[in-house]
Simulated assay, not measured.
Amino acid sequence: MRDTCFIPVDEWQARTRRLLERLKDGGEVVVAEGYGFEFERRGRLKAGPFVPEIVLERPDLVRGLHEEFVDAGSDVVLAFTYYAGREHMKGIGKESLLENININALKIAREVADATGTLMAGDICNTLVYEKNNQEAIERTKLMFKEQVEWAADNGADYIVAETFCELGEALLALKAIKTYGKGLPAVVTITPKTNDLTFDGVPYHEVGRKLEEAGADVVGFNCGQGPGTIIPLIRRIKQAVKCPIAALPVVYRTTPEQPNFLTLIDPVTGKRSFPLHLSAVACSRDEIYEFARSAKELGVQYIGLCCGNASHYMRVVSEVYGRKPPSSKYSPDMEHMYCLPDQSEFYKTHAEKMKKYT
């Protein structure tokens, strides 16, 4: 474990300001999330528990995906510690891996951030343990947050993300842990909007944003749960309630007002639930991601990204809408040179004529 006593004071103070300096005066930060689903799609992570054992088994692949997302425009390398909290690890018989997974994930993320000039964020998330008014569950939740926040602070995080909470109570516990044990690091706190109106503990989303801001969150908003098709109205409401920067990181699936949560989406061919193994049947197009990013930018969303289902081609779209030209823009689509589509360049005209009956 990296001991913070060996980090010079001036370096530590600079670290605590990096995120806020980028967001100052309307600045924007593009953030790639969605590591768990992407590694599962690549056959490297078990669906169900979604525990990031790949951090220990194939750190080279974790490093590679960090680099891939940075090339696609992410300003942040998010340590892959999602679902690496003590109680979740204990529940699947992996508690012995807890500290190694967290420390290794943070070190990999720090190395990539240093090499690419990006920010590095620690990550804590919903515990699957928290219960309102259950003091024993609350104490277990506090312990989980405390140790993960301390690991993140001690291993070079520039700020800490607390994400995917369905209840204001758990989000406030996570924020308090960052404020208490995070050694001055900024806190980004995001709620998962499972419905269109209220958290599981009955709080309107705009009120959640206000309460988190009052409790000291530096950025508040939404991640996961809903997709581009339904999350914009929620962002609009929360933005009216707070003064701090807003975060928006939806899933990349086609949620609707009737089915606002991606957990309930139905495969249009089979009629079966798509989550979690058949979500490709309800995935967004790049145009939908473009429209989401455009709307978010118009609303003044400063902390923008994508969550479950994210991939580098989606990330590049968001980055380009936000005015960036990352390295992977070199490979952005150029349909003028797609030989089998009509109305292409002179070079492909003959073949395009042959293909018209198919297109």
Rank of each mutant, 00 (worst) to 15 (best):
L198E: 07
A283S: 07
P193Y: 12
N102R: 05
F165L: 02
R294Y: 02
F347K: 14
F347M: 14
T190I: 14
G309D: 10
A137P: 00
E150H: 04
P193M: 13
Y339T: 10
L128K: 15
D287C: 02
L78R: 06
K107R: 15
P52T: 00
D267I: 09
E33V: 15
P52C: 06
V62W: 07
D114Q: 07
S319R: 14
V31A: 11
M315R: 08
E111I: 01
V219F: 15
K183N: 07
Y303L: 08
F275Y: 15
D154Y: 06
A121P: 04
E213K: 03
P59T: 08
A352E: 06
V51Y: 01
V321W: 15
I103E: 06
Y82S: 11
A247T: 09
L128C: 13
G227D: 12
E207W: 03
R294C: 00
E213G: 07
V252A: 04
D71Q: 10
E353T: 04
Y322I: 10
T195Y: 03
G64P: 01
R17S: 11
V242H: 02
N155A: 07
D10C: 10
A171Y: 08
L341R: 05
A247H: 14
L212R: 09
C307L: 14
V220D: 00
D334A: 10
K356D: 05
D287W: 08
E346G: 03
K94F: 05
P49M: 00
G182F: 05
E99M: 13
D267Y: 03
E11M: 02
I246P: 04
R2L: 14
Q148W: 02
P245H: 05
V317F: 09
R22K: 14
L128E: 14
T255H: 09
G225D: 13
K357T: 15
F347E: 14
G48I: 05
V317P: 08
K357A: 13
A352M: 00
L143W: 14
N102I: 12
Y348R: 08
R294K: 02
L168S: 03
I92D: 00
F80V: 13
K239L: 03
Y35L: 15
F50Q: 01
N100M: 09
A174I: 02
A352F: 05
I103W: 10
V51K: 01
H337I: 01
I238H: 03
S285E: 05
F165E: 03
Q344F: 09
I238Q: 09
L97R: 05
D123S: 13
Q302P: 07
T116I: 02
E147A: 05
V161I: 14
Y83N: 03
Y322C: 11
D197E: 11
K349Q: 13
